[in-house]
Design a protein around this nucleic acid. Structure first.
Length: 101
RNA sequence: UGAGUAAGCCGGAUGGCCGCGGCGGGUGUUUUGCCCGACGAGGAAAGUCCGGGCUGCAUAGGGCAAGGGUGCCGGGUAACUCCCGGUAGAGGCGACUCUAAGGACAGUGCAACAGAAAUAGACUACUGCAUAUAUGUGCAGUACAGGUGGAAAGGUGAGGUAAAAGCUCACCGGCGGUAAGGCGACUUAUCGGCCAUGCAAACCCCACUCGCAGCAACACCGACAGGGGCGCCUGCCCGGCAUAUGCCCCGAAGGGUGGCUUGAGCAAUGCAGAAAUGCAUUGCCUAGAUAGAUGGUCAUCUGAUACAGAACCCGGCUUACAGGCUUGCUCAUACC
C-alpha cells in the first residue's frame, strides 16, 4: 500500500492541526492523499475537513515543485479550525519540507 | 388568549469570484487537453431491523421431519412483523392514545418474601354445648370481620341462622345453550345451573408461513511474467484428414468495462372507495462517484447556529433533529 510506504520512508512535518508526509516520486505530477480517521466524527464532519485540506492544497499547487507524493493526516483539532488556519499551516509545512519552487 | 391533541409540510435564500463530478455539444494530431451549456445528496441519505426486485448456488415434481418467523377480525399491497378501518381491554374531564390481543378441561412446570392458609386452610375471631365459673379449658359449627400479599375463589344489598355460608332471592360480573344482527372479531336479548387463580415475553399445543448467500453478488476484457495441454474418425494399433511464430486452459495488476440507474418512478387532473389504495389520461427524466464529486471566500436578508453525506434499487420500521409553518378537534377563561 502506497500510504504505508510514505508513513515509514517519507519526510514528516508537524503542525497543530495536521501532519504531512512527503517523498519524491518519479512522475511528472504531484499526488495528494488525505487521511481523516473516524476519531474526528461522522461522515459529514470528515468530509468537511477533507474538503478544506483539498482546497488549501489546490491554492498552493501552482507554486510547488512537481514529482512528489504527499499525504496529509488531520488531527482532532482540525474540527475546530477555520479555513484560514488550514491555509497558513499547510503553507508552513510545505515550506519546511522545501517543496516550493 | 392559554393549555392540549391529531395529521401534514419546510428544514436557509439571493448574487459575484475561484474550484470539483459525470453528461451533451464544439474544437483539437490518437490520447492527455481547451471552450460552452444545463444538471449534481436527505427527511431521515443513518441504524442495517423486516419485506421484495436483481444475481449466483442448491433443488429442478411432491411430501415429512428439524429449525426460524407470525398470532383478535376484515381490507390494501409485489410482499411484509408494514398501512387503513373495525372489535375487545386499559388510560385520559375531553379531543384522543396505547396493547406480542390464539390456546391454561393435551401434558410438564412455576407462584420468592409475607401470611393461619397459595389449590389448599383456620392465627385473631363469631356462635352453641360441656365443665369449672373473675374467666379460662375442651368439643362442635362457621368462613362474615381483622391482618399478609400482585392474587384469598364471584361482588353489592336483602332474607335467613345459635352464629353463618349462592343456603335462597334481586341486580351486576363470569360460564354454557338458544335466537336476532354483522362477511367476521363480536354485540344485543333470553334461558340455565351456581361456577377453581395467575403466568404460555416458561417448556409446550394449534393455525399460517419460510431454500442459502449477497453488488466486495455476478458477467466480460485482460498488460509484464509464470505454469499446463494438443484436434477428428477412435478406447488401442494401423491408416486417413487437418495443423503449429498456432490454438486452448490455469493464474493475474496500484487493472479496465458492464452491472449503474426508466423505476412496484415523480407531478397534475378525473373516477371508484369510509380509508389505506387502485384505475385512467396528460406531462416530466430528476446524482451515478470508485479513495469516492456540492467546497472556499465576499456581500445582503434573517432569530437562523439542528440532526446529518447517495455507493445496486425500491416498500416499510426504528433512532437523531435548532427553529418555523398550516389545518382539524378538545378543555379552561374572558367578551358578545
Amino acid at each position: 500500500m502506497l500510504f504505508k510506504r510514505l508513513y515509514y520512508r517519507g519526510k514528516r512535518q508537524h503542525s497543530p492541526i495536521l501532519v504531512m508526509h512527503s517523498m519524491p516520486n518519479r512522475l511528472s505530477c504531484n499526488r495528494l492523499g488525505i487521511t481523516v480517521s473516524k476519531k474526528l466524527g461522522k461522515a459529514v464532519k470528515r468530509n468537511k475537513v477533507r474538503r478544506r485540506i483539498y482546497e488549501a492544497f489546490r491554492l498552493y499547487e501552482p507554486v510547488l515543485k512537481v514529482g512528489h507524493d504527499i499525504v496529509i493526516v488531520a488531527k482532532q483539532k482540525a474540527l475546530l479550525s477555520e479555513f484560514g488556519q488550514y491555509y497558513n499551516e499547510i503553507g508552513g509545512v510545505l515550506k519546511r519540507a522545501n517543496l516550493f519552487k
